[in-house]
Write a protein that binds this DNA or RNA. Structure first.
Lengths: 337, 337
DNA sequence: CTGTTAGCGCTTTCAG
DNA sequence: CTGAAAGCGCTAACAG
């Protein structure tokens, strides 16, 4: 920058003003300076800029890991909105916690006190109460996706409602013996839980109650890894029992549901003739397996767009903490139930 | 930091030294200072640190978009290696170009001249020749994944070989009428091409040649978006023609291959009885569709590990530019061919 | 309309 | 073993 200044016969301050579009500079010197900037391929040193401005110009996005559709879809939407609005261009900084609470807390503090971001979007993972307070005190907005906490801004899909509708549909169409496959609602040591599992369980129970069906532990299968193999394993467990479900709501996601279907097919169990299956997520596979999977769809793209816009609004002070948005999921009827 | 210094009755310099594990500080003052650091929840201002050190402590990763298995798998591996080695912790900065050349070039310059990264990993996307030179001059290593260029370090899977083997397998087992579905080898205005498409086409042609089969344009289908729908559309096109393929090598990836199979199923075409299909990538769906998809597997996790280690080596000067690694893909035989 | 100056928070020589 | 002081590259009052 000094280099440019001397070449243009001005001082650093002037160059700085030109680059930040300060009105007070003459066309002439502005043009002269901009030309030199181009020639020298000058780009400002961001660290210096941030230091001087006390603003980071970045939005941090924290998720458990990069694979999996929520995180990547969201990131894509965020980038897209960023380009369309021209705000925070190349300023989206994703982090993954690798599912470890320690890494998460460390990271959140590092971001806050290291002034690494103007706002933090957390997808699926949840900050500790203590940290929320610290963010509040330092006026750095926390935007929670798929979670809700006092002192933050949140965007969720209505998990309870989604589970309720899936379960109710199964009751009406296939009767009262409904299996549920759901994520672990208790965390493992040092790991985070996704609260949506609890909410979906709640929706399932509510639907049973609404239809006067008693909750039965033996109809519940727990998925630890949300993976294909879990579906295989859990179906086998169900089949070993005396009481077998006539239908399964796989709240742990389509991937697990596909595991169930695959296993069923190998065992000669017809779907939905012998066993009806509903999944959750509406991932690509759902339309592709045979029979096609009936499932609950969440509008991830919509969430991403909202997340970006609300984050900007929060940074610029247009919305306050404890704003919560709840999106409704959608039951997509296909062949499996 | 000044706060800490005064509380500890020392000066900023001493605190700084303690934090950077300088040997010269007494146990006593060190402990005293560290205690206060904990109490105050102090974390250094990174911008200030970077500015003073002239080092960014971050590795930039540039890809076309976040969705799609290569980018996310790679990122996961990078984070994982970073944690395991303790190097560049929380220092992986992913960027997406949204497939636009202009964004890409802008970004590369911004990173280079803004001193935003110690090295840049580019996955699938390719820098311009000019930019490579600039990086070279400034001694910032460029690591290319799925590409190769003079002046960079590269990691590739052998696309030509993968395509050759798939094609050859089809020739031997299903005869000479082999369709190819491949990504566009010509870029659209302002967009980047993935060079692997060209390489796979090359492998296909080589295999034909090796078996004395003449290349026939009407057996070629071009996929623009690498998506399920492309498979559907292209199969329909093949079927309209006079000459129909007996087998299809879907070099454009498993997702497209699944589209082909899905369409075939709906039309009553048996796989592999009437039409054999081989995909590329070995994504999750491949094991799940009926019949299970025969495909070419690329070791993305291995690539990620390698990418991280080589990047570190490059930064620390242990490997030089124009180091190229070529990984062999693997033909995974399942039911569809 | 442009130059001067101080300062953002940290590191690092050089004295003491 | 610790303090003082200069400087990293940029911005923003305040003068002129």
């Amino acid at each position: 920058m000094k280099d440019i200044a001397t070449r243009a016969g001005v001082t650093k301050a002037t160059v700085s003003m030109v680059l930040s579009n300060d009105e007070r500079i003459t066309e002439k010197t502005r043009d002269r300076i901009l030309k030199i900037v181009k020639e020298l391929n000058y780009y400002p040193n961001e660290s210096a800029q941030k230091l001087a401005l006390g603003k980071s110009n970045t939005i941090a996005v924290i998720g458990p890991r990069y694979v999996g559709s929520l995180m990547s879809t969201l990131l894509h939407q965020l980038e897209d909105r960023s380009h369309k609005t021209g705000k925070y261009m190349h300023g989206i900084q994703p982090y993954s916690t690798l599912n470890q609470t320690r890494i998460k807390e460390e990271l959140l503090r590092k971001i806050l006190y290291g002034h690494k971001a103007d706002a933090v979007i957390m997808v699926t993972v949840k900050p500790g109460e203590e940290i929320v307070k610290e963010y509040l005190k330092n006026k750095v907005p926390l935007i929670l996706v798929e979670n809700k906490m006092k002192g933050t801004i949140s965007i969720q899909v209505n998990n309870t409602d989604g589970a309720f509708r899936a379960t109710e549909y199964l009751v009406k169409k296939y009767g009262r013996k409904i299996g549920l496959i759901v994520g672990n609602t208790k965390p493992r040591e040092g790991e985070d839980v996704n609260p949506s599992a609890g909410e979906r369980l709640k929706g399932y129970r509510a639907a049973l109650k609404a239809n006067n069906i008693e909750f039965d532990e033996s109809y519940i299968g727990l998925s630890g890894s949300y993976a294909f193999e879990d579906g295989v394993k859990i179906l086998d467990e169900f089949l070993k029992k005396r009481k077998r479900p006539r239908s399964i709501f796989c709240a742990a996601g389509d991937e697990v549901a596909v595991g169930v279907m695959d296993r069923a097919k190998k065992l000669g169990i017809r779907i939905p003739g012998d066993l009806a299956v509903i999944g959750y997520d509406d991932i690509l596979e759902s339309r592709v397996v045979t029979p096609e999977l009936t499932t609950i769809r969440q509008r991830f793209d919509e969430m991403g767009r909202l997340a970006f816009d609300m984050t900007i609004d929060a940074i610029e002070g247009r919305i306050k903490t404890d704003t919560n948005i709840l999106l409704d999921p959608e039951l997509v009827l296909r062949e499996s139930a």
